[in-house]
Simulated assay, not measured.
Amino acid sequence: MKYKNLGVIGGMGPKATSVFFEKIIENTDANKDQDHINMIILNHATLPDRTTAIFENTGEVFLEHIKEDIRLLEMAGVDNIAIPCNTAHYFYDDIKNMTDINIINMIEETAKDVYNKYGEKSKVGILGTKGTINSGIYEKACDKYNIKLLVPSESVQDQTMKIIYDNVKGGLTEDASKLESLIMDFIEEENCKCVIIACTELSSINLSAEVKKYCIDAMEILINRSIELSGKNLKK
């Protein structure tokens, strides 16, 4: 079987990209170096902030930078592209139109996974950047599968942004208990079946096993799909 090369447009943020790479390795069924996936990772840390691009309507600047990354990955001969950033998927159609290379749609794959696990009319929560939440990309994907998506209150959104920008991106001590509390409020107070972790910075925080069982982590979905599309098997 011919295995396929994976391209990654990363740096959004760098820590999330490093976690994505580590988890690709950890979750690939491999016994030696040669069993792993060939990857080209672009840690493009200077890409404009995605939430800012959405709110200030400056997406064209962001897309110009992405276009450079796409050209590099085309020259490298990758077969699939993963973008471990939920908010960047607001521009998915524009990016997709730049190339014939398959770009894995993390939002679509995540909504499909929620549907497969919990079925139609499931009530699920979501935590992510203000850009991801307000853009409606997850609501659109969930509507396709007739899933009821409960977005965070303004207070919860503010707390989530502090965790993402101050703790993870800002390099402060990561306190998993704050994130776990937000997740469990969706489960216990709002009667949600699960919570979509829709920010790769949040994905880099180690949650307890008890809380993690209520989560659908979009980055984990992207990791698994990237492994499968590369022709490799997931580690059991």
Rank of each mutant, 00 (worst) to 15 (best):
D35M: 01
L229C: 00
D143F: 14
I187G: 04
G231A: 02
R71K: 13
Y214E: 05
G136S: 04
D113L: 10
C142I: 02
D69W: 06
I9A: 05
L42P: 00
T110C: 01
T132L: 01
T46H: 12
N31G: 12
L73P: 00
I103Q: 03
C85T: 07
M98H: 07
M1K: 08
G128F: 02
N146S: 09
I205N: 01
Y118M: 02
M12N: 00
E108T: 11
H65I: 11
M161K: 08
N38E: 12
E22A: 11
K232P: 05
N233V: 02
I133D: 06
M98E: 10
D185S: 15
T129G: 03
K121R: 11
E109G: 05
L182Y: 11
I40A: 09
R225F: 03
A53G: 06
M161I: 13
L73Y: 02
A45T: 15
L150A: 06
S181H: 12
K96R: 14
N134Y: 15
S181T: 11
Q157L: 12
V8Y: 04
L234S: 05
N31W: 05
T132A: 05
F91R: 04
G119H: 03
N224R: 02
I41L: 11
H44F: 15
K4C: 01
S155Q: 14
G171R: 05
I197V: 10
Y90D: 01
N38M: 09
G131L: 04
N86P: 00
K112D: 14
R225I: 14
N97T: 10
A82T: 05
G77L: 03
P14L: 07
K232F: 15
T52F: 15
E154N: 11
I227F: 13
N57S: 12
I101C: 02
T87G: 01
E188T: 14
N5C: 12
A111P: 01
E64D: 14
D175R: 08
S230N: 03
L127H: 11
D93K: 15
I164Q: 00
R225E: 15
G13L: 10
M219R: 08
S177L: 03
I9M: 04
G128N: 04
M184T: 09
S18L: 13
G13S: 14
